[in-house]
Nucleic acid binder design. Structure first.
Length: 461
DNA sequence: CTAGCCTTGATA
DNA sequence: TATCAAGGCTAG
C-alpha cells in the first residue's frame, strides 16, 4: 500500500497509529504512547487484560486496554532502558546516534522514492527477528516440544538498579537474575518471541550506502579493551576481505539489550502463569537459544554466506552452531578482565567458584576446559578482528580444523589457532552432549532453535 | 489515568 | 547556541 499510494506510513505511531511527535524510547512514537510508556515503566505498573490479551490498539481504542497497549509498545521495539532510573531530565542518551542514523536512512529512502517513483527498501534483506521467527525451523525436522519443567525452584532477585546493571557492577554468585532495568519487574506476559527489533538499530553497515573499504562507523565490540596484538592493525592496512568480514559484526550492546528484554518478558510470562520462577539452568538455555538466534542472523548477514543456497546455509549452520555458540561465550571471557567471574551476553557476571561448586561433573569439566581455552587465547592476544575471522573459519569449514592443516603450515600463529580450533570442537561436542543429556531428562525448556539445531546435526551424523 | 504542553540539559 | 529527547505538570 505504501508503495502504491506513496504514503509515508512511517510518520504514524507504530503502537496506535496517531501522529508521531519525535523519537521516544527507541523509535518514532506519538506523544500519548510516549507518556504511557514512561508512566508504566517509571511507576512499575501492572495491568491485566479483560479479554484474551490480543486487543486491537489504535488511536480511538488505546485507552481501553493498557495491558495490550504496553505489550504492543514492547513488541514494536520501545526500549525499557531508555526510561531513566534516576529520572534525570534533559540531555541525551545512548540512543542519540541511532536516531540520527534512522533519520538519515529515512531521508535517503525518501530521496530514492522521489527519484525513481518506486518505493525502495533501503534496508538490505537482513532479517529482523520477528520476520524470521526461526525461519530455519520450518525446514528442520520437527521435534516434539518439551514443556517447561515443573520443578523450578530458584527465585530470581530483581533488586539491581539499572545503573548497577549498566556499569556491570551487579554480580550474583551462583544466582542469575534477568532483567536489565528495575522497572522491568512489571508483569507483561504474552510477548511474541523473539522480541521484534527496529530496523534503525542495525548498524550502518546494513545500509548499502557505506563505502567499500571503510568501516562505516562500526564500533568494535571490545572497544574498551586495549589489545596488545603482536600483529597490530590500524584499520587502514587491513585486507579488504577482513574489512568486509568485520563489517558484518553485530553490535554487542544491541544484542545484549535485546536478549535482556527477551528474558525479562519470558520471566514475566513464566511468573504470570505460575508462581514459580525459571531455574538458572532454564535461563542459561534461553540465553543460549537467543544467542544462537543472533548467530544465525549474523551468518545470514555475511556477504559470502548470503550467496549460498538456503539449503547449504542450513547445512553449514547445523554443522557449526555449537562451536560458534561456545566461541561466542569464550571470546566474551577473553576480553573480560575479571578472573573470578564469567561474563554473560546479558552483561551479568557469575562467580566462577560458585558456578563450579553447583555444576555437576560434565558441566564442571566443560567450564574448566573453556577457561583453559580462554587463557590460551588471552596469551595469543587475539583481537576482535581475529576472532571474527575465527568465526568465519568455523562457519565455512564443514571439514573441521584439519581441513586447514596445510594452509597453516609455516605460520606459527595460525597453527596455534588451529590447535585452539580443535579444542573448541571438543568443547562444543561436550556442550552438545550435555544439552542432549539434559534434554532427554526433560530439563531443557522449550528452546526451539537450540534443540532443533542439536537434533538436526545428530540426524545428519 | 490520559495526553498535550512545558522544562531541562548534554550534545552536535 | 540550537536541538530534541528525556522528565514534569496538570486540565480534563
Amino acid at each position: 500500500m505504501e508503495c502504491i499510494y506513496g504514503v509515508d506510513l512511517e510518520e504514524l505511531c507504530p503502537v496506535c497509529g496517531d501522529n508521531v511527535s519525535g523519537y521516544h524510547y527507541g523509535l518514532l512514537t506519538c506523544e500519548s504512547c510516549k507518556g504511557f510508556f514512561k508512566r508504566t515503566v517509571q511507576n512499575n505498573k501492572r495491568y491485566t487484560c479483560a479479554e484474551s490479551q490480543e486487543c486491537k490498539i489504535d488511536k480511538t481504542q488505546r485507552k481501553r486496554c493498557p495491558f495490550c497497549r504496553f505489550q504492543k509498545c514492547l513488541t514494536v521495539g520501545m526500549r525499557l532502558e531508555a526510561v531513566r532510573a534516576d529520572r534525570m531530565r534533559g540531555g541525551r542518551n545512548k540512543f542519540g546516534p541511532m536516531y540520527k542514523r534512522d533519520r538519515a536512512l529515512k531521508q535517503q529512502k525518501k530521496t530514492l522514492n522521489r527519484e525513481s517513483g518506486v518505493k525502495v527498501e533501503s534496508m538490505p534483506p537482513v532479517m529482523s527477528p520477528d520476520q524470521t521467527d526461526y525461519a530455519l525451523s520450518n525446514t528442520l525436522p520437527n521435534l516434539t516440544d518439551i514443556s517447561t519443567p515443573k520443578n523450578i525452584m530458584l527465585n530470581m532477585p530483581f533488586s539491581n538498579t539499572s545503573a548497577e546493571y549498566e556499569q556491570g557492577l551487579y554480580t550474583t554468585p551462583g544466582c542469575i537474575s534477568i532483567g536489565s532495568h528495575s522497572p522491568l519487574q512489571s508483569q507483561y506476559p504474552h510477548q511474541s518471541l523473539p522480541c521484534r527489533t527496529i530496523k534503525s538499530e542495525f548498524p550502518d553497515h546494513y545500509a548499502s550506502s557505506s563505502s567499500p573499504g571503510s568501516t562505516g562507523g562500526y564500533t568494535y565490540t571490545y572497544q574498551n579493551h586495549t589489545i596488545n596484538s603482536p600483529t597490530p592493525h590500524t584499520g587502514l592496512d587491513l585486507p579488504a576481505l577482513v574489512l568486509e568480514i568485520v563489517h558484518c559484526e553485530q553490535d554487542e550492546l544491541l544484542v545484549r539489550s535485546k536478549i535482556s528484554t527477551h528474558l525479562a518478558l519470558l520471566q514475566q510470562n513464566q511468573s504470570s502463569g505460575s508462581n514459580e520462577a525459571l531455574s538458572t539452568f532454564a535461563i542459561m538455555c534461553h540465553i543460549a537459544d537467543q544467542t544462537l538466534f543472533f548467530i544465525v542472523e549474523w551468518a545470514r548477514s555475511c556477504s559470502f554466506f548470503k550467496k549460498l543456497k538456503v539449503g547449504d546455509q542450513m547445512k553449514l549452520l547445523q554443522n557449526c552452531w555449537s562451536e560458534l555458540l561456545v566461541l561466542d561465550f569464550i571470546s566474551r571471557q577473553v576480553h573480560h578482565d575479571e578472573q573470578d567471574t564469567i561474563l554473560l551476553i546479558t552483561g551479568q557476571k557469575v562467580g566462577l567458584t560458585s558456578l563450579l561448586t553447583q555444576a555437576g561433573v560434565i558441566l564442571g569439566e566443560f567450564v574448566r576446559g573453556a577457561q583453559q581455552l580462554v587463557q590460551s587465547l588471552q596469551k595469543l592476544h587475539l583481537d576482535c578482528r581475529e576472532i571474527t575471522c575465527f568465526k568465519y573459519l568455523i562457519l565455512f569449514n564443514p571439514g573441521g580444523p584439519d581441513f586447514f592443516a596445510d594452509t597453516g603450515r609455516g605460520d606459527p600463529r595460525f597453527s596455534q589457532l588451529l590447535l585452539h580450533l580443535r579444542e573448541l570442537r571438543v568443547l562444543s561436542t561436550q556442550a552438545e552432549d550435555y544439552l542432549s543429556y539434559k534434554h532427554l531428562n526433560g530439563e531443557v525448556p522449550c528452546n526451539k532453535l537450540l534443540i532443533e539445531m542439536l537434533y538436526a546435526k545428530r540426524a545428519c551424523d
